[in-house]
Computed example of a mutant assay.
Amino acid sequence: MNLVFVGFLFESFIIILATLVLILILKRYLIKKHRLTLYLFLIFLNLVLSVVFSWLSKILVLTTNIDYVYNEPNPAAQPNVPFPWLVTRIVDFRITVFFVAVAILISYILKVKVFGTDYVTSHKIIVYSFGAYTGIFCLFVYQRGNTLLDAINFLNVLVYMFMIYVPFMIRSIEAYKSVEEKTYRIAFFSLAIMSLSFILVFVFTLIDRITIIFGTEGFTPFYFAAWTFVIIGFLFAYLGYIRPKSA
């Protein structure tokens, strides 16, 4: 069985579902003009783009002479394709991870706005600095076939996710416990599940990368679990937070 083709089909399904939710969120924003809904739309837009570029990587592998290269830094056969700088980073999921990093940064802004807190200067500097480091690492600290660097790349994003989404999840749970109105309880619970889901996306993705270092071809059950949690996060955010009157 061609695992790349299976991954392509699976991500096609994820993209269709995610795009439908994204359209619903956009429609909600155009009706309500609620700034928090706009932030969620931008977060989800970047996450959808991340899946799209992961999907494009599989199209490139399936239709061109380029292939996934693992545990072989600077492989002898470099891909003979137009725009190799961009294409190799698409194939090796660097562009995918870059859009995830952007989504995390917007999530930080959403967290501050949702809970009505002011930016803490020191924390803001750390968040933006680590975001810049993660983005630079995604695009420029790269060696084709160096799976260890790829794993570090995913680890960077996982750390960034923990920095933003763990506090987001904790605050959402606290708010869920403290409010009485059912609509807001559902909204905060949904945000907590969304945060947990997005963390698990990269926990499972990192595990999948680590298995490659030890000789697998990737596309383990952890890979499929990762993208599944993208949809879970989307659905909980939409059904619990955006669709109700809270957004």
Results as ranks from 00 to 15, higher is better:
K177M: 12
S190W: 10
F202Y: 08
V201C: 07
F198I: 07
Y176S: 05
F188N: 02
Q143E: 10
R89S: 03
V48C: 02
F115G: 07
D118K: 08
R243W: 13
K124Q: 11
L24F: 15
S178V: 15
G135H: 03
L45H: 12
A77V: 14
F5E: 06
L17P: 01
L38P: 06
V102W: 08
N46M: 10
A18T: 11
R89C: 10
I164F: 13
S178K: 14
N146D: 15
P73G: 05
L56K: 03
E217H: 03
V21G: 02
L148Q: 04
I173L: 14
F130S: 12
A76D: 06
L239R: 09
I104C: 12
V69R: 04
A237M: 07
F98N: 04
L149E: 13
T64V: 15
F204S: 12
V51A: 03
S178Y: 06
L56A: 02
S129T: 07
I199W: 00
T63A: 02
G116P: 08
A77L: 14
F44P: 14
Y29C: 11
M169D: 02
A132V: 02
I14R: 10
D118G: 12
N46C: 10
Y68K: 02
M163E: 03
S197P: 00
Y165W: 08
A247G: 14
F214N: 05
F10M: 08
R171T: 08
A77G: 06
F137L: 14
M163Q: 06
K245P: 00
M161L: 12
S122K: 11
R243M: 08
L191Y: 02
F236H: 03
